Computed example of a mutant assay.
Amino acid sequence: MPEATKGVLFGLSAYTLWGCFPLYFALFAGVPSYEVLIHRVVWSCLFLAIVVSVMGRWAPIKAALSEPKNLGFVLGCALFIGLNWGIYIYAVESRQVLQASLGYFLTPLVNVALGLLVLRESISRLQAVAVVLAAVAIVYQLVLLGVVPWISLLLAFSFGTYGLLRKKVALDGLSGLFVETLLLLPVGLLALGWLSMIEQSHFTDTPVMALLLMSSGIVTAIPLLFFAGAARRLRLSTIGFLMYVNPTLQFVLALLVFNEPLSDEKLLSFVMIWLALGLYSWSAWRGRKPPERV
């Protein structure tokens, strides 16, 4: 099988699993999102340690941990990915998967905006139009629906900021995620101890719930491993197109499984985001040509 085909299969597997996450996190009904997040951090760290050991990838991790003064950006990554995970779990538990879907549709456009504002990158006119159109869609929701889509915005900006900080970290995806969760591990363990002390922990409710909470580590790591396999074999532009599988699946699940209402106003805001993504994708596709600068 050609390497490019393997890469596409790995990429589709990763984004399909991420897109199906609402089905998984919906199983934690009755467990507060912050407790699910705590377990996700703890068990992810344990499972990733096993994976790193099996793959013999301790060298870059030891090198990173030997220089604590250089871990500032890694800590920033850890905080933002933790925030992203927590908001996402809350969105699923509160049956706001449509907002989560919108957040991940917005993410690439937020990346473009952050690149322009923070890194002072030049962007094409089409990319600029795409960002403006996405902003109009958010303002439209605010004006006509009278609500700020805060879940969508927090998901998009937390993951976008995570990606921005990740550029400053000289670690591959697997090693980076392990160090990030390792930095959060002490807080996670303290939080678990506190929940047990006040008898608010759901870990011992039933054997099934205990297994579900423990499985969060595996569920976190497996898509990442698939994604790493795709990233080694595919061009960045190809991976960029595949990433839309994730929010598209979430959008479909929100409508067909979670039966979330989709008003005409909300649908129009999605259409504006999709148009913005279309412009962004077209700009990325023709990226080999010299772009018009703004």
Rank of each mutant, 00 (worst) to 15 (best):
P2W: 00
T5Y: 11
T5A: 14
K6A: 15
G7A: 13
L9K: 00
Y15P: 11
T16M: 05
Y24L: 15
A29L: 10
L37S: 13
L37F: 14
I38W: 02
V41S: 08
W43H: 06
C45E: 01
C45V: 03
A49F: 12
I50S: 07
S53L: 09
M55Y: 03
M55P: 05
G56F: 10
A59Y: 08
A59P: 00
A59R: 12
I61R: 09
A64F: 05
K69G: 08
N70V: 00
N70S: 09
G72L: 00
G72Y: 01
V74A: 15
V74K: 06
L75C: 02
C77F: 08
F80Q: 00
G82L: 04
N84W: 02
N84D: 06
W85R: 07
G86F: 11
I87W: 07
Y90Q: 09
R95N: 13
Q96A: 09
L98R: 00
L98N: 04
S101K: 01
S101W: 03
G103H: 06
G103I: 04
L106T: 02
T107G: 02
L109A: 10
L109I: 12
L109S: 09
L109W: 08
N111A: 07
V112H: 06
V112W: 05
A113F: 12
A113K: 00
V118S: 04
E121G: 02
I123Q: 12
S124Q: 03
S124A: 11
S124Y: 08
R125V: 15
A134F: 04
A134P: 01
I138D: 04
I138L: 14
V139W: 10
V143H: 10
V143P: 05
L144Q: 08
V147L: 10
L154N: 09
L154E: 03
A156T: 11
S158C: 11
Y162H: 02
G163I: 10
L164E: 10
R166S: 13
R166H: 07
K168I: 05
K168G: 01
F178E: 02
V179N: 10
L182D: 01
L182S: 05
L182M: 08
P186H: 04
V187P: 05
V187I: 15
L189S: 00
L189K: 04
L189G: 00
L189N: 01
L190S: 07
G193A: 14
W194V: 14
I198F: 14
Q200T: 12
T204P: 06
V208M: 14
A210Y: 05
L211Y: 08
M214W: 06
M214F: 12
S215T: 02
S216W: 02
G217N: 03
V219K: 08
T220P: 05
T220I: 13
I222E: 11
I222P: 09
L225G: 05
L225Q: 09
A230M: 10
A231D: 13
L236H: 08
T238M: 14
T238E: 15
I239A: 14
M243W: 04
N246Q: 15
L253A: 12
L256F: 10
L256W: 09
E260M: 11
P261I: 00
L268H: 09
S269E: 09
S269F: 07
S269C: 10
F270A: 12
W274I: 08
W274S: 05
L277V: 04
L279P: 00
S281T: 15
S283Y: 03
W285V: 04
